[in-house]
Amino acid sequence: MGSEEAETVATVLAAWLGGPVIRDFRSSMGPYYVLIAPGSDWGGPGERLTTGTYLGVPRPGHATTLSRWVVLSPYPGALGDTRRLCALLASSESLRVVHG
């Protein structure tokens, strides 16, 4: 995203993906999880969680030390666009080089 500022990252992710994103703080990497439709095509560089995998989803408006919403769903049932997610991940390496 070119920034470490949580608000900037949230703004960019919301604009790019149009769907909900959760960040998990249980590991030092603090991975982001973009919620996409279970049957959607995925050929992107990131790992996709599969059947039998559990992801803790925080209650909206209640931040925890384990995870929090970075981008709330704009409306019930809205999910991220996998094509846009692939484009964002493909550009992420160049963002790291340029910004840091």
Rank of each mutant, 00 (worst) to 15 (best):
M1N: 07
S3V: 01
S3L: 01
S3Y: 01
S3K: 00
A6S: 06
E7W: 00
A10R: 00
V12R: 02
L13I: 02
A14I: 02
W16G: 01
W16C: 04
L17Q: 05
G18V: 01
G19T: 01
V21M: 03
S27F: 04
M29L: 12
Y32W: 09
Y32S: 04
Y32I: 02
Y33Q: 03
Y33N: 03
L35N: 09
I36S: 08
I36T: 14
G39A: 13
S40G: 11
S40F: 07
S40E: 15
D41Y: 10
G44A: 11
E47P: 10
R48M: 14
L49D: 13
G52A: 05
Y54H: 09
Y54N: 10
V57P: 08
R59N: 11
G61V: 10
A63H: 13
A63N: 10
T65R: 14
L66C: 11
R68Y: 14
V70I: 14
L72K: 12
L72Y: 08
P76Q: 15
G80M: 13
D81F: 10
R84F: 08
L85Y: 07
L85Q: 05
L85D: 04
A87D: 11
A87W: 03
A87Q: 12
L89A: 08
S91H: 10
S91Q: 13
S92F: 03
E93A: 05
S94W: 08
S94R: 09
S94P: 00
L95E: 04
R96T: 05
V98L: 05
H99Y: 12
